[in-house]
Design a protein around this nucleic acid. Structure first.
Lengths: 230, 230
DNA sequence: TTAAAAAACTTTCTAATGGTAAGTATTTCA
DNA sequence: TGAAATACTTACCATTAGAAAGTTTTTTAA
């Protein structure tokens, strides 16, 4: 165990509190005082563990993106075929413990930090890259390499688009709608002759079932929250 | 002419200055002092014409979105067929006087204001709706109504996704790449048997040529800047 | 033309904010 | 045990958003 285990714990607590603050008050309404208040400590403690507001937001950003990638990893554990792994990626990105109005709005708030924060930029680019490369890897089973790249890129941009839309709209967000839109895209992008429609449907069902157990479990939620924070 | 023509002019100047500030310093780095400095006036003037920072940002947001819709309107003037109008929408959304790193980054910064600002939300939803409805109207020529809606929705989400990506990345943004990705999507979504490939290509060429003259013209740029601000 | 009403602009002040610095208390470990 | 590191606190400062009250300029209408 690191000598700075308290620091690790505090940083986790504080970035969680900051995440809540962003959800509640937006980025502009999130002050160090409020973050401290939510975490039950003084502003001084916040600045003791994070050198400034930018690095606090960076941790929040990492947390919010980490939640997603941990979900993909979790669902990958159960996915055994390309069909299933493809759905694992999609379902992980839109499962309703993560893809809901509050979180999407927070994400939209947070990305405004990206253009002027090199570290956030690195995180975001890495996440996009990983997502795209995961998608490509599975799509290669259904399309030639060059086309697979295009399709993967297309789907990953689409995922971002759906997230932004969800964050911009005031209305509630539907996990099912988003997943349906992804299905529509897949059906258009991947050639039906290379796909086994039955297998495809079965894969989606399986992964959605697995997700509803695995991603909702307290154990997973706890683990991700612990893992995610530096 | 409105009795408040000075007010109109000032609001235009100030929201332009604020837009520049957001580009330069990001949303969090944009202060009323800096906005005033860029506009060559004191902070007091800024607050005299905008009741608070939120309403200033709202005007900036309107400006940035208005730039887009004015471009669509401008290109529509030259578009005579569904093919051409479809490309008019796409080219307007990605032409490089608007779709460039600075503007995309500013847009990404600005949308963080949306979740906690009802007015910005209204603007954003209206723009999305209009864009989607424009797309749908043209796509209906190539697909049955129900499918056209899905395709239009898909393309408009994709446009948002490409904009976000462009704003998140540090590297320069390529208008051509974005347009190519839209073309890829169109080719996958619209049935090739319902489309005249030659006409399609010709339409794209025509609109791109028109855009490079029309959207770059000083007259258009000036007009939009004047029109856009309330 | 001129008085007064309205709008444009300035100045001054305040509470809140991000951040620093200089402390004290607690933990760790040699 | 005792000193070095870490956790936390407090007091402070410069900047910020915004309010309030003032002054100048422009409109309007008698």
């Amino acid at each position: 165990m690191r000598s700075s285990s308290i620091r690790t714990i505090r940083r986790a607590e504080l970035s969680k509190a900051a995440f809540e603050a962003v959800i509640k008050f937006g980025l502009r309404g999130t002050t160090l005082d409020k973050v401290g208040e939510i975490a039950g400590v003084s502003k001084g403690v916040v600045l003791h563990h994070f050198k400034d507001k930018s690095s606090l937001l960076e941790a929040v950003f990492r947390r919010s993106n980490g939640l997603l990638s941990e979900s993909v990893v979790e669902l990958y554990r159960f996915a055994e075929t390309p069909y299933e792994r493809l759905w694992a990626i999609i379902v992980a990105n839109f499962f309703d413990t993560i893809f809901n109005r509050r979180v999407c709005q927070a994400w939209v708030s947070l990305i405004s930090e990206v253009p002027h924060n090199k570290q956030c930029q690195r995180i975001q680019i890495a996440c996009n890259q990983r997502n795209q490369s995961n998608l490509k890897h599975e799509i290669k089973h259904f399309l030639p390499k060059a086309e697979a790249l295009l399709a993967a890129r297309h789907l990953s941009v689409l995922i971002d688009g759906l997230w932004v839309r969800a964050g911009l709209l005031s209305s509630n967000v539907s996990s099912n709608n988003a997943i349906s839109e992804m299905e529509y895209a897949i059906n258009k992008l991947l050639p039906s002759d290379a796909m086994d429609v039955e297998k495809h449907k079965a894969a989606r069902n399986k992964i959605e079932t697995v997700a509803s157990i695995s991603l909702s479990s307290k154990a997973f939620q706890k683990q991700t929250l612990e893992v995610i924070n530096c």
